[in-house]
Computed example of a mutant assay.
Amino acid sequence: MTVFTKKLTALLPAMLLCASLSGVTTMSYADTSNPNVPISLVKNWDKTFAESTKVDHRKVTFQNRYGITLVGDLYLPKDRGERKLAAIAISGPFGAVKEQSSGLFAQTLAEKGFVTLAFDPSYTGESGGYPRNVASPDINTEDFSAAIDFLGLQNEVDRDHIGLLGICGLGGMALNDAAMDTRVKAVATSVMYDMSRAMGHGVGDGKDRYTSADRRAVLQYLNAQRWKDAENGTFAPGSHDIDVDEKGKVSASERILPETLPANPNPVLKEFFDYYRMPRGFHARSVNSTGAWNATMPLSFMNMPLLSYANEITIPALVVTGEKAHSRYFAEDAFKAIGSNKKELVIIPGANHVDLYDNVAGKIPFAKFEQFFKSNLR
């Protein structure tokens, strides 16, 4: 690599950010193997929700501790004046992008007076990292801390008043980060999933699904897939929801959601399908909307429990879930594990899991989130 090429590579993130803020509509890069380059920086409004006239919005980039460039949407209240504001880093659901639920949460909370940052986790959406469509309990936790780094350097932000909000699977990562990053002053989740538990023990109806024998069978299945990937030199696609039948046979689909719903679908499948595959929440960059994870992605989650140190979370914590959410037991158990003496569990009557992604008609308690962060980020 020449000196010029090295300098150009080092400057690319800053160049891309400047370009994105100066009117470029779309920038795409074929070199997805370079984690220092975003996959794209789309400036035009391509969210699944309407743009607010009450906030300023801009596309931003920042790097995590592993050198992966993350892409986010920064939302600021238009009436912010010159004062520094409290800020919230937001991500999730698992397999979603910032143009979906996290962006809606970020824009709405910016309307209520916060600086907010909705970001794509590493290896997904517009963020960098190769191979694509990978998740990691460690790296995705680090992504939240990287978002704090970025927010704390903004002129509009009071770096001593930064909180986290994680939705669905990123809720577990937000709690994990709150247990480690002492700069976090308050943490909230919406219909949180503990992805280590979900992948390592199976998602059941209010309880873990896998027996110890099932868990072993899943590990054997995933490691057999590793041999195939190594032999082929590619990463096969697959769903993170892995089934084990009564005879111990393991199976998983090649994509997260089907092209069409089967007859009499499982209600949870229908919830996700009606959001990710329908105009309501579809987005082309969302793994859940268009494709699959790498098939071996669950391995690290199965071996690295996310909430091992939840008892060390001593900051204010708000855990929101739905009365009818299939994920409710994750939230309730996480709430019990959190060590803070200032914590609250809110169960929304009649709400299922996906209602708390985007159903603002009385389901998402934005007033509660506003009250929580205003009380604890003062």
Rank of each mutant, 00 (worst) to 15 (best):
V3F: 01
K6A: 07
M27A: 11
M27N: 08
E51G: 03
V55W: 07
K59R: 10
Q63C: 06
N64H: 10
N64G: 11
R65Q: 14
Y75V: 00
D79E: 08
R80G: 06
E82S: 15
A87Q: 03
I88K: 10
S101C: 09
S102Q: 02
F114Y: 06
F114T: 02
T116S: 06
T116P: 03
G125T: 00
E126G: 09
G129Y: 00
P131K: 09
N133Y: 06
V134Y: 07
V134K: 09
N140C: 08
N140Q: 15
D143Q: 12
S145N: 05
A146F: 05
L164T: 07
A174I: 02
N176R: 14
D177T: 04
D181H: 00
T182C: 05
A188R: 06
S196Y: 12
A198R: 13
G202H: 02
V203P: 00
R209C: 02
A213N: 10
V218S: 02
A224I: 11
Q225V: 14
K228G: 02
D241I: 11
S251N: 14
E254S: 08
A263N: 12
P265H: 05
P267L: 10
V268R: 07
F282I: 01
A284W: 07
V287S: 01
S289D: 01
S300Q: 13
M304K: 15
T314R: 00
P316I: 12
L318N: 07
K324T: 03
R328I: 01
A331K: 03
F335W: 15
F335G: 13
N352F: 10
V354N: 04
L356H: 05
N359P: 09
V360S: 13
K363H: 12
I364A: 12
F369R: 03
